[in-house]
């Protein structure tokens, strides 16, 4: 009797652990499915300015009081990375060092943008040691139709939107620059193009 119970117990443990492993595997698969359908990297989900269209030209002051014109053609030939953030968004904070590193490169101007109470942003900028231009403007967010944060828009020297999207990681930020280099508007377009190429081959 004891031996029978022991055998049944061993069998049940094996079954429980196997089922547990299956459940974890299923949860992982749901995660993979989310990754596939999630707006990631250079994917646009809003109906703001389209990639390839001229960027809305908006004038705004930064925290230091200097006037900036966003979206206008610039003479120095540098691209502008417009990064919409909020002090209450941990992912935005985690990306600040990456943005600072990108800004140190010669070919890119990085501009931060947000809206809301001025003191809150000044405290945030001081706390995080932000040296980049930090625009405070509600019209800016509205004209670029920013719905999700952190949102990044890459504008070239002629004032044309080259890539934009929700950025959660360094890779997403880099995918924006890569999207510009490859001339792809979004992840969907990239996948569609790849599929077409495969179909042709």
């Amino acid at each position: 009797m004891t031996e029978a119970l022991l055998v049944s117990n061993v069998l049940l443990w094996i079954a429980v652990l196997a089922l547990g492993a299956v459940v974890v595997a299923l949860v992982r698969q749901i995660g993979v499915l989310h990754e596939r359908v999630r707006p990631a990297g250079a994917l646009a989900i809003q109906t703001g300015p389209r990639v390839g269209e001229p960027a809305p030209v908006v004038e705004a002051d930064d925290l230091a009081g200097a006037a900036h014109v966003v979206g206008a053609p610039v003479a120095d030939g540098r691209d502008t990375l417009l990064f919409f953030l909020s002090p209450s968004c941990p992912v935005c904070k985690a990306l600040l060092p990456v943005l600072a590193a990108l800004a140190r490169g010669a070919s890119l101007r990085v501009v931060l943008a947000s809206d809301g109470a001025r003191q809150e942003h000044e405290a945030f900028a001081a706390r995080e040691g932000i040296a980049l231009p930090y625009l405070l403007s509600t019209p800016l967010g509205l004209s670029y139709r920013v719905g999700k944060l952190p949102w990044a828009v890459l504008i070239d020297a002629d004032g044309v939107v080259r890539a934009q999207g929700l950025v959660n990681t360094r890779e997403h930020l880099e995918s924006l620059l890569e999207a510009k280099a490859q001339g792809v508007a979004s992840i969907q377009e990239y996948l569609a193009r790849e599929r077409a190429e495969k179909g042709a081959a």
């Binding site: 061993v10 443990w13 547990g20 974890v24 299923l26 949860v27 995660g31």
Partner: peptide, 23 residues
């Protein structure tokens, strides 16, 4: 067997529940 199986089963359940919360 009970201890090893129990800890492993709880760890699997924990991972699965956290995954579901994120999803």
């Amino acid at each position: 067997l009970t201890i090893a199986g129990g800890v492993a089963a709880l760890a699997l359940i924990w991972t699965a529940v956290h995954g579901l919360l994120a999803h």
